Amino acid sequence: MTLKQLRYLICIADNGLNISSAAEKLFTSQPGISKQLKYLEAELGMQLFKRKGKSLTSITSAGFEIIERARNILRESENIKNLAGDLSDEEEGKLSIATTHTQARYILPDVIKNFVKKYPKVDLELHQGTSEQIAELVNTHQVDFAMATGATKYFPSLKILPIFNWNRIILAPKNHPITKLPLNLDSLASFPLVTYIFSLTGDSSFKESFQKKGLNPRVVFTARDADIIKTYVRIGMGVGVVASMTFEIGDSKDLAALDASDLFPEVTTWIGFPKDMVLRSYMTKFINMLSPIYNKHLIKKIISCDDQISIDNLISKIDFPVYRFSSKENRVDLV
C-alpha cells in the first residue's frame, strides 16, 4: 500500500466516482489510476467500490471507512512534511485557501500581494464558493485554510479565529426613492431587493431581521458576487444590500450608498485551519498578515487549545476591527 494509491482512492471518491475526472485532476492517466485501485483492493482483499461494467456506481461500507482513514493518513503525511520543512527552515511549499467571493475580491488581494513578496517559493491556491462549498473542501481535506463569514456550525473540524466584523450597506441608483425616505426595514421592504445568495439551510441574519418585524421582502435577484449585485442595481432591478467593504470610490459616480448598520446585526469574518494540522511558519505568517492581532505568541497558544471554547475564551477580550461605512464622508474604513 502506498500514499499514491490512497491519494488516488480519495480523489476518485471526491470526483463523483469518475476515474477520468480524477485522472485529470491528478495529471495522470485513467488506466494508471484503475490499475492502482485494483492493486489496492487486491492487497486489502475487498472491494472499495460497487461496479456496473467498468463504471463505479457507489462506495461500499468498507470503502467509506477506509477512505476516511486514508484521509487521516494523508493529513498526517502532510503534517510530517510541514514539520520537516520548518525544521529545515525551508520557506517553500503550498498554501490552499477556500473563501467567499467577497473576501477573495475585496480583502485578500493586498494580503496575498505582500505574502508572495515575502514567500516567492510558496504556491497559492484560492478556491471560491459558498459556505457549504467551502465546508465540503475542508471536510475532504482539499484546503489548508477556510475563510468565511458566520456559518461556523459547518466547520466543527476547524480552529476558528475571528478577523474583523462588518455591517451591510444599501445601494441604489442616485435619486432612487429610497434615498428620500427614512431608512428602516419597513421602507426597505417596500422595494424589490438584490442581495447575496442565501444559505441552503435557510439560515440568514438578513432574513431574520425582516422576520422579527413581521416583514416579507421581495428578493428579486441573488448572486454570490457583489460586483454582479451592483450591476443589477444599476439597471434598476432593485435596491442592493451588500457588505460594507465592497463599496468602492467609483461606485459613488452613479450609486447612492446608505449605512444599514442599524438594520441588520454585525457579522464576523474568520479564518480557520484543521485542528490536527501542523502549521508551517509561512502559514502562521499569512494569518498574521491578515490580522496583526495574531502574533506568533498568540497563535502558539491557540494551537495548544484543545477546543473552540478554549480559543474563544483566550481571545474574548480582544476588540476586533470593524468595517464601517461613513455616510458623511461616503467611504468605508476599517476601525
Rank of each mutant, 00 (worst) to 15 (best):
K230T: 03
T268N: 06
E41M: 00
G93K: 06
L56Q: 01
G238Y: 03
D276W: 00
M289G: 01
P120V: 10
P156E: 08
L17K: 01
E132D: 13
Y39L: 14
Q308V: 11
P177K: 12
F191V: 07
Y39A: 09
L334G: 03
I178E: 08
I293E: 13
S96I: 14
R218F: 07
N18K: 07
I59E: 09
P192G: 05
N216Q: 06
I134T: 09
L279V: 03
L200D: 12
A226P: 12
G45D: 00
S34Y: 00
T60E: 14
S304L: 15
E132S: 11
G202Y: 03
Q103K: 08
M277P: 01
R7N: 15
H297G: 07
G240K: 07
L137V: 09
R324K: 15
A243N: 13
D186R: 11
A42P: 00
T222A: 02
M283I: 06
F198E: 03
K180A: 08
K212P: 01
S157N: 14
N184G: 06
P274R: 09
K213F: 02
A70I: 10
I170M: 08
T231G: 07
Q36M: 11
P120M: 12
A172T: 07
I107D: 08
V278F: 14
F286G: 04
A260N: 02
G272I: 11
I169E: 02
I235Y: 02
W166M: 14
K230D: 06
S310Q: 15
I178S: 10
L200C: 00
G53I: 04
K121C: 06
N288H: 14
M245F: 14
P292G: 09
H101K: 13
A98M: 03
